[in-house]
Amino acid sequence: MKIVALAGSIIGSKTKIAIHKMVDILQEKYPQHEVTILDLAQYNIAFSDGRNYVDYEGDTKYVAQTIMAADAIVIGTPTFQASIPATLKNIFDLLPVNAFRDKTVSVIVTAGTAKHYLMVEQQLKPILAYMKAHIVPTYVFIEEKDFLRQEIVNDDILFRLERLAEDTVMIADAFVEIRAIKDAEYDF
């Protein structure tokens, strides 16, 4: 299985810390799966202009094709102005409407305050559902107070990240089996 861990912002460190921790967990618990990290700060991504994602070049094409080739995606996003960052929205705009069909998507959110937890429910999950993702129902919400010296120090957050990794892989595996059963119904 191909898993992409997407750090959905070009600034800040907390989302990257959380995504890297998730990658560590996935690589430790599921070494048989291919895990790729896409830190948007490391790429020069063009603004979406309506073209098909394969018609872009360079970093934009690489990031879009890597996401499209994934079986599961872990999206890490900070909360900016009670919303997702423009860099993450641009990634969604670069991809086709059905980009997440047959893909499992889980979410890690960082925010300065607990008041932003509904951003996932009111903004991010509807976008993912529109793009046909199999959304892992639970997500990990990490506040400023859960970090100290560039590390996650809240044991509950670490436990929830491990659980999110398990849920992501289990749900992705389950949907692969469901798809195989469904495909076997067709005799052509």
Rank of each mutant, 00 (worst) to 15 (best):
T15A: 10
S48V: 01
N154T: 10
T60A: 06
I135T: 07
Q42H: 12
V35K: 03
I75P: 10
E34H: 09
I19S: 05
Y117I: 10
L124G: 08
D39Y: 11
Y62H: 14
A99D: 07
K103C: 11
M131I: 06
K103E: 11
V74S: 06
I171H: 01
S13Y: 06
E177S: 13
I91W: 05
E151T: 15
D24R: 00
D187S: 12
K16G: 08
D146T: 03
Q32F: 02
Q42G: 13
E151M: 12
Q122T: 13
Y186M: 08
K125V: 15
Q27V: 00
Q81R: 02
P85C: 06
I91M: 09
M170R: 08
V97T: 08
D71T: 03
L164F: 01
P126C: 07
K182R: 11
R163M: 05
N154W: 02
L6Q: 04
L26Q: 03
D183R: 09
K21I: 01
N52K: 01
V169A: 07
L118N: 11
K182D: 13
D71G: 15
E28N: 06
A174K: 04
H116K: 01
Q150M: 11
V107L: 14
V35L: 04
T87H: 07
V105H: 09
T36S: 11
A99G: 12
S48N: 12
V169K: 02
I10R: 14
V74F: 07
F175W: 13
D71L: 04
V107Y: 07
E151R: 15
R101A: 15
N154P: 02
E166L: 00
F188K: 09
D155W: 00
V176N: 13
Y30N: 07
T138G: 07
V63M: 09
I135W: 01
A165I: 00
P85T: 05
M1Q: 07
D183K: 12
V120E: 09
A69F: 03
L148M: 10
A18N: 02
T138Q: 14
I181A: 14
D55S: 02
M1C: 06
Y56M: 00
A64Y: 11
Q123P: 01
E34F: 02
V35T: 13
K16M: 05
E57L: 12
Q27R: 01
Q123W: 00
V176L: 13
I11E: 13
Q65L: 08
Q123E: 14
T36C: 06
L158Y: 00
T79V: 15
E121S: 12
E143G: 14
N52T: 03
I108W: 12
D93S: 09
T60R: 02
I178C: 11
L158H: 00
L148Y: 11
A46H: 11
E151G: 07
V107W: 04
T15H: 08
Y139G: 03
D55I: 00
E177Q: 14
Q32L: 02
Q65H: 10
T104H: 07
T138I: 02
I17T: 15
A165T: 03
I142D: 10
E144I: 09
A41C: 05
S13C: 05
D156E: 09
T79S: 15
I108T: 08
K29H: 04
P31D: 02
T104F: 04
I142M: 12
Y62W: 13
G112V: 13
L148N: 13
G8I: 01
E121W: 04
